[in-house]
């Protein structure tokens, strides 16, 4: 089946079997390998992408269900050369080691902070409870997210 949607602002189309997940479509058809696949049943969060503004599990959505949608992957968080403030905060706080979970952490936190720039530490902990990291112990990830809030508050128009 042909499916047409936008990824990181660009119109794309792919010819997929209905059983192909959005995550597999992004990786194998569109060659956007930043989206990682861990558990393939909605537990680990590595495949998180942003669909029409909402963070979703890329392995629990079919590519054909993305017809007409606007999808943002980790590659699309920054269309510039440099890192986003959230990515800079991850670097600064050593919020990654092996990096496998990082794309899902970044997309999840980007979706959250875009919508809730004032998210509390408790809220951030709750939200990333759906993303498994086996290296960092989460504390640096939470510190990075708390730090990055300022840039999202600024983007909202706060002084």
């Amino acid at each position: 089946m042909k499916v047409t949607f936008t990824v990181n602002g660009a119109a794309v189309s792919a010819d997929v079997t209905p059983r192909m997940t959005l995550a597999d479509c992004l990786r194998h058809e569109l060659h956007l390998t930043g989206t990682h696949i861990g558990c393939e049943h909605g537990v680990c969060g590595a495949c998180t992408v942003i669909v029409n503004g909402d963070a979703v599990r890329g392995c629990l959505m079919l590519a054909v269900q993305a017809q007409g949608a606007s999808v943002t992957t980790v590659e699309g968080l920054s269309l510039e050369e440099g890192l986003t403030p959230l990515q800079e905060a991850f670097k600064h706080h050593h919020a990654l080691q092996c990096g496998f979970c990082t794309p899902g952490m970044l997309t999840t936190l980007h979706a959250l902070l875009s919508e809730e720039p004032d998210a509390s530490e408790e809220r951030i902990r709750d939200v990333i409870s759906g993303n498994i990291c086996r290296c960092t112990g989460y504390v640096p990830i939470i510190e990075a997210a708390l730090d990055a809030r300022a840039s999202y508050q600024q983007a909202r128009g706060d002084k």
């Binding site: 909402d54 959505m61 759906g130």
Partner: peptide, 9 residues
Amino acid sequence: VAHYQIRNR
């Protein structure tokens, strides 16, 4: 119910 991403769908 489950996690943030799952509650979105």
